[in-house]
């Protein structure tokens, strides 16, 4: 019985957790059915994600995915962040059972919303 090591690691030691003083872009996404909530805040400079924070509550998969996502996009161009696909997120998380895909993809939906894309 366990989750992928990457999920356990980010769940136990979340990266970039907290708030930015004055974010250039932000979004909150929630799964109303299970109560998972993720807030993503971005500081953008010269077309790049200069800094990022997440905040939220919910299951280990959604919160670990949010933490992991902040690492995936920090320092990347906004275009690269916009181009992230579901498969990129799921690939980075390792093995996510199909009953939990909506948890795993919640932070990515928040990112797309923050960057002005439809979720």
């Amino acid at each position: 019985m366990s989750y992928e090591e990457v999920i356990l690691d980010h769940w136990r030691h979340p990266r970039n957790k907290g708030r930015l003083p004055s974010p250039d872009a932000s979004a909150v996404e929630a799964n109303p059915l299970c109560g998972d909530v993720v807030r993503l805040e971005l500081a953008l400079r010269d077309g790049r994600v200069e800094d990022v924070r997440f905040d939220g509550e919910g299951c280990a998969i959604s919160q670990a995915a949010a933490s992991l996502l902040t690492e995936m996009i920090k320092g990347k161009t906004v275009e690269e962040a916009r181009g992230l696909k579901d498969e990129d997120m799921l690939g980075a998380l390792g093995n996510v059972v199909k009953t939990r895909l909506s948890c795993a993809l919640l932070p990515l939906r928040a990112l797309r919303k923050a960057l002005g894309l439809g979720s």
Partner: peptide, 22 residues
């Protein structure tokens, strides 16, 4: 401190089916 969905997913790995949600 553990979300019910995580409980249910981990139990499922051992063949135990419980409900999690509202």
């Amino acid at each position: 401190g553990i979300h019910p969905h995580d409980v249910a997913t981990l139990l499922d790995q051992e063949g135990i089916a419980i409900r999690a949600g509202h």
